[in-house]
């Protein structure tokens, strides 16, 4: 039954508050940028249909609050993730320094079957800001990604739509690969797949 369904990919976007998670997501899905986003409270998601190698997939992008303490309730939506996007602000060293702990936190909460091979993507956002404010060089960021087992790295600007499309294409591709590998290992527990249990949860009224 699941095989004839269009795959639903679940992507979690993490990173310090104010690095541009909501903006990146909206730029990618709605092709819009505005400075008027409010700080995200709780969680929300956007869905986008994408073609990956001629396969139509539906990608659910989960946006979360950036302050650490709000992550403890995250289990509810970390489960069943197919890819995790770690975002930092290239002009903010602190937001780069915390990438590691965001990654660890995710692995603990989502507890994927094979944590070593779980797909992450790192995005260094806000490259539109003047160069003198830049705090983290591309070289340093790539070094970090290399040391974590070759995490794909993109430098983006949600504001000017730089590299956003490209980054999410890789995210979709890696998520799909992850989804398929999970399926291959017989994981039918994926709670985000809304196609699996129509009969089971049929309308109660």
């Amino acid at each position: 039954m699941a095989s004839r369904k269009k795959p639903m990919l679940k992507v979690i976007i993490l990173g310090d508050s104010g690095v541009g998670k909501t903006s990146l997501m909206n730029q990618y899905v709605n092709k819009k940028f505005t400075t008027s986003y409010k700080a995200t409270i709780g969680a929300d998601f956007l869905t986008k249909e994408v073609l990956v190698d001629d396969r139509l997939v539906s990608m659910q992008l989960w946006d979360t609050a950036g302050q650490e303490r709000f992550q403890s309730l995250g289990v509810a939506f970390y489960r069943g993730a197919d890819c995790c996007v770690l975002v930092y602000d290239v002009n903010n060293a602190k937001s780069f320094d915390t990438l590691d702990s965001w990654r660890d936190e995710f692995l603990i909460q989502a507890s994927p079957r094979d944590p070593d091979n779980f797909p992450f993507v790192v995005l260094g956002n806000k490259i539109d800001v003047e160069e003198k404010k830049r705090a983290i060089s591309q070289k340093r960021a790539m070094g970090f990604c290399q040391s974590k087992g070759g995490i794909p790295y993109f430098e983006t600007s949600a504001k000017e739509a730089v590299n956003v499309e490209q980054a999410f294409e890789i995210i979709a591709r890696n998520a799909l690969a992850q989804e398929e590998s999970e399926e291959f290992t017989g994981d039918f527990q994926d709670p985000i797949n809304i196609h699996l249990d129509n009969e089971a949860s049929g309308c109660a009224c």
Binding site: G42, F45, A76, F77, P191
Partner: peptide, 19 residues
């Protein structure tokens, strides 16, 4: 409640609807 019970079947749907 009626809408939720008639139409929403998954956590993500409920969350989206309520948001």
């Amino acid at each position: 409640r009626t809408v939720i019970m008639d139409h929403l079947r998954q956590f993500d749907e409920v969350l989206k609807y309520v948001n």
